[in-house]
Amino acid sequence: MPKRFRQLRLAAVCRLAAWCAASALVPVAAAQAPAQTAISAENQLKAVFLFNFAQFIAWPQGAFQSLQSPIIIGVLGDDPFGPYLDRVVQGEKIGNRPLVVRRYLRAEDAAECSILFISRSEAGDFDRVKEKLKGRSLLTVGDFAGFARLGGMVRFVTESGKIRLRINVFAAKAVGLTISSKLLAHATIVATEDN
């Protein structure tokens, strides 16, 4: 084949291949863009864990008003899970108790729930949040630095791309919560700093 023709043809192949790739991607992009506000895989998995915790926690007697009272999973502050958490929990029951999701802006309103995810937006205010929730039999969960060390109960830590659990057993015991050994077996146990 004459060399010049070969060069022209290759340049054309390059361009054509690039355009094919571009035109293949653009409709996909357009179709997927508005479909959902992106919840990262990391937050999706955390949402599934929040649901899972309901099966591994025993609340003390009197923590619920009745046998049918729902287990409330709360999110305090900026919500990283969006509708994904509702989808995970939808239609689920633990025994006779249905699961429901509620969102809170103020810590005092969150005292009613059973599992509370305390968002990073509250990190600076954590001392005040703890004060408002003091003595309540609810499982506090968070993912900001120092959460478990500062008296939170379950912290999500992302390490080498995977989620790890750090559990402050003492903080949970202090409000009468029992965490199943099945969960503890996979977690790192930490203590509050002043213990």
């Binding site: 990391e42 998995l45 599934v48 864990f49 080498s160 791309g161 995977k162 996979h186």
Partner: peptide
């Protein structure tokens, strides 16, 4: 995801390493 055990969940890669 809800059907997986705790250790299976902990083994999922959630961020590009």
């Amino acid at each position: 995801l809800k059907k997986l055990s705790v250790d299976q969940l902990l083994d999922m890669v959630v961020t590009s390493v």
